[in-house]
Design a protein around this nucleic acid. Structure first.
Length: 581
DNA sequence: GGCTATTGCAA
DNA sequence: TATTGCAATAGCC
């Protein structure tokens, strides 16, 4: 087999961890395949890859083969991207085959088994694997022939495909392969500390509830059991209903607490104590189970790094998502949480550092451009703090007389407008009444009439077309926009409002990543792009390249898209992701 | 073990 | 009863 054969088209089949097999697209079930030949060549390369069996997706393998001079194109992934652009969100090859082609495909589980007896795919005998590989190849080929013309039919989608999604693939793969270094010592130490704290809080919790429940055990991790405890045993005032009981989430518990504090009749030292203990337990337990204890197990022993997976076809708005682990939701807002970020480190500090560049208020800038609201545009052009500027307008005071409460409220409105605000949402976020929430919205739109008109326009267009789109024409279908059901329609309207804003911001970031990646290569820098967190890019960089990298991202990120407001980029750097300035 | 519900972390 | 994600635990089948 000639490794550079142009018609060897890569196709991921059965992603056992770190293992994908490649067969030419278009082969049908039962046809003769040169699978043995392909495997003979590809398998040793995969076995020898330094990252070994670390969990990765097909593109990871594709690029690995490309690095070894095998000219593969991952048509499987390309087809999924096309399907995604066409609005087929969140479904894989098997579902697409069923939905689009009416073909039922046998799940891999049938071949490799499940549970303890499960084997990885590279141990499946070749005779057994061949028909499955052929089925994947066949379906992918047929799906491509369905989707390709549909994409070509729409100029915007063709451009998104050729100028954005396809060039982004190798960027994401490089980031996945590079990984980020993690100091597991920091995490192990934290785990011990948190364990003690958890034991202590749980013990206090048991003491507090002992008299009420006697010998009965309450699992503090079970919302159902907590609901019974708080609202049946302790008789506390009800929170909002869920399907299984009363809500015990942090919001509900905070509300409950304030009612227990304010209301003399319900005054309950014991109740307040239990609620506080649950809240504290939850905070620590969440951190420990989701991050502190989980992350060390995700470090690849060969690289000492965590290699997240980036999903290019996972979201309805065009965002990239991250999994295994998700590095887009590592804590930062509390000091305890930020400590987790400190475990993400530069290699060989201080010769190397981590560097982070983020778009400042990208979604509000996008909104200013899309809505052309004069007030919002002007505020950005003046370079003002946007929430203070909004507060200044809303409350009719000079910007230097805006106090923190006014700014807080304005900030809620600015965020709210991106999410499709409601009077109720605003009241929840601000702590004011629904009535006052409604008044805030009214004065907000009075000052930003362009935003109001824009939102009405988006909704009208959505009702007409059943879809909304970003500035570059990425679409999201919103069929329920015309639902007679108030709740269903309302939800669709909020999605319709949010998608063009969030999606345009996501498009900008994708273009920026392609530009920055290209420049890093062109200038042969050792700096590497590691993470994307929606509006932020994280790099590792040798100190002597720091200034170059800074100039580079300040050049490329704002230039990703030309809007009527400039795209501002902030940067910070340090030895860990947790302490940067 | 697969599925749903609840909860909570990020932008 | 604000948008987009991913993931942990409980609890059911």
């Amino acid at each position: 087999m000639d490794p550079m054969r142009a018609d060897l088209v890569g196709l991921s089949f059965a992603t056992a961890p770190g293992r994908a097999w490649y067969v030419p697209v278009g082969h049908q079930q039962g046809s003769q395949l040169p699978l043995e030949e392909v495997l003979a060549e590809v398998r040793p390369l995969m076995e020898s890859d330094q990252l070994g069996k670390s969990a990765h997706n097909a593109n990871f393998d594709m690029m690995m083969l490309a690095n070894h001079g095998i000219n593969v194109q991952n048509v499987d992934h390309d087809t999924m991207i096309a399907a995604h652009l066409l609005g087929k969100t969140g479904i894989g090859l098997k579902n697409l085959a069923l939905e689009v082609l009416g073909e039922e495909m046998t799940p891999i589980a049938k071949l490799i088994g499940t549970g303890k007896k499960q084997i990885t795919f590279d141990h499946v005998p070749i005779e057994a694997a061949t028909p499955y590989a052929a089925a994947d190849a066949d379906m992918t080929g047929r799906l491509r022939s369905v989707f390709e013309p549909q994409v070509k039919n729409q100029e915007e989608l063709t451009r998104l495909m050729s100028d954005m999604e396809l060039p982004l693939v190798p960027v994401l793969v490089d980031m996945q392969r590079q990984g980020i270094k993690v100091d597991t010592g920091v995490l192990h130490e934290m785990s011990r500390d948190l364990n003690e704290q958890i034991q202590q809080v749980e013990e206090e919790f048991r003491q507090t509830i002992k008299e009420k429940v006697g010998g009965l055990s309450v699992n503090i991790n079970s919302p159902q059991q907590l609901s019974d405890l708080l609202f049946k045993e302790l008789g506390l005032p009800h929170t909002r209903r869920t399907k299984t009981g009363y809500s015990t989430d942090a919001n509900a518990l905070q509300d409950l607490k304030s009612r227990l504090t304010d209301d003399d009749i319900n005054a309950s030292i014991e109740g307040i104590q239990v609620v506080d203990q649950i809240l504290e337990y939850r905070q620590i337990a969440k951190l420990k189970s989701t991050y502190v204890d989980a992350l060390p197990g995700m470090v690849n022993p060969a690289t000492g790094r965590i290699h997240t997976r980036y999903n290019q076809t996972g979201s309805a708005t065009g965002r990239v998502s991250s999994s295994d682990p998700n590095l887009q939701n590592i804590p930062i807002r509390t000091e305890l949480g930020r400590q987790v970020r400190r475990a993400f480190i530069a290699p060989d500090a201080p010769q190397w550092l981590l560097f982070s560049a983020d778009y400042s208020q990208i979604e509000l800038r996008v909104l200013a451009h899309l809505s052309q609201d004069p007030g919002l545009l002007e505020a950005f052009r003046k370079g003002e703090d946007i929430h203070s500027a909004t507060a200044s307008s809303m409350f009719d005071v000079p910007i230097n007389e805006v106090d923190s409460e006014m700014r807080r409220i304005a900030k809620v409105l600015n965020f709210g407008v991106i999410y499709g605000l409601s009077a109720h949402g605003i009241s929840q976020q601000t702590g004011f009444s629904r009535e006052e929430g409604s008044n805030f919205i009214e004065s907000y739109f009075a000052k930003y009439p362009g935003i109001s008109e824009y939102l009405e326009g988006v909704k009208a267009s959505a009702r007409e077309n059943q879809y909304v789109e970003t500035l570059l024409g990425r679409r999201r279908s919103v069929p329920e926009i015309n639902s007679p059901n108030f709740n269903v329609r309302g939800a669709a309207e909020r999605m319709a409002i949010n998608m063009p804003i969030q999606g345009t911001a996501a498009d900008i970031m994708k273009l920026a990543m392609i530009r920055v990646h290209r420049r890093l290569a062109e200038e042969s820098l050792r700096a590497k792009m590691l993470l994307q967190v929606h509006d932020e890019l994280v790099f590792e960089v040798p100190q002597e390249e720091m200034e170059t990298l800074k100039d580079l991202v300040f050049d490329e990120m704002p230039a990703a898209m030309e809007l009527d407001v400039t795209l501002k980029v902030d940067a910070k750097w340090g030895e860990t992701w947790g302490d940067m300035e």
